[in-house]
Amino acid sequence: MIIMIQIENISKSFNNHLVLNELSLTVNQGETLVIIGKSGSGKSILLKLIIGLLRPETGNISIEGNDIVKAGFRDLQEIRRHFGFVFQASALFDSMTVAENINLMLRKRLKWPVQKISERTDECLRFVGLQGLGKKRPSELSGGMKKRVGIARAIASYPHYILFDEPTTGLDPETADNINQLVLKLKNELNVTSIVVTHDMKSAFTIADRISLLHNGKIVVNGKPADILKSEHSEIRKFIYGYSLLK
């Protein structure tokens, strides 16, 4: 197994409230790691630390050996080219059409030729099942469609890594399942390495190669889905209990 993302002893606090406390975590090439944890446990903060939107007070984060914490802006930009980020509330640019959202990076940063950009945009729209909707504005879409546009935007530039922040939260079961299938497809067809943050256990068990529990600022349980099902940890039991009720 090749370690792609290595997080060592990172701490992050807001207004004297310690959110992450000496947290360590590794992510291997091609795997889908699902991080579960209560609302407010610091899952979004963890993703933002990995991509360098926030910096930890202590600790190291390295991506393929590149130090994210000490990286300057230009180095960060270089590393971020290999990442896709799916935001919890989609974060689509509402001044742009769906197509412009998806191909912004190809147009402005990677400067692809026009023909290639339009082909790739259509391809991404088809991948998330939204072909023909490129001319729409984000404000005309439903929540589930926005999430899918967010995914299309995240994959457009063939990232090696995709970070998903609660991709299925707040969606109806069918749309949620669509999104789970998309995550699986990305892994199987494109071999991307993903971190998915969620508290949707159905989604977690559908897509995860490995599940980690974030609790009190640390990763306290870490294992294959089958092991997690058997875990005795009380927080895990709470998640599993809700999940078995649903089944």
Binding site: K48, I51, L53, F73, Q77, E78, R80, R81, F83, F85, F87, Q88, A89, A91, L92, F93, D94, L104, M105, K108, R109
Partner: peptide
């Protein structure tokens, strides 16, 4: 507040 600025940064924009 809708994280569009974060999204720009993540897409390696300044």
């Amino acid at each position: 507040v809708t994280e569009q600025i974060d999204a720009l940064e993540v897409m390696a924009f300044n």
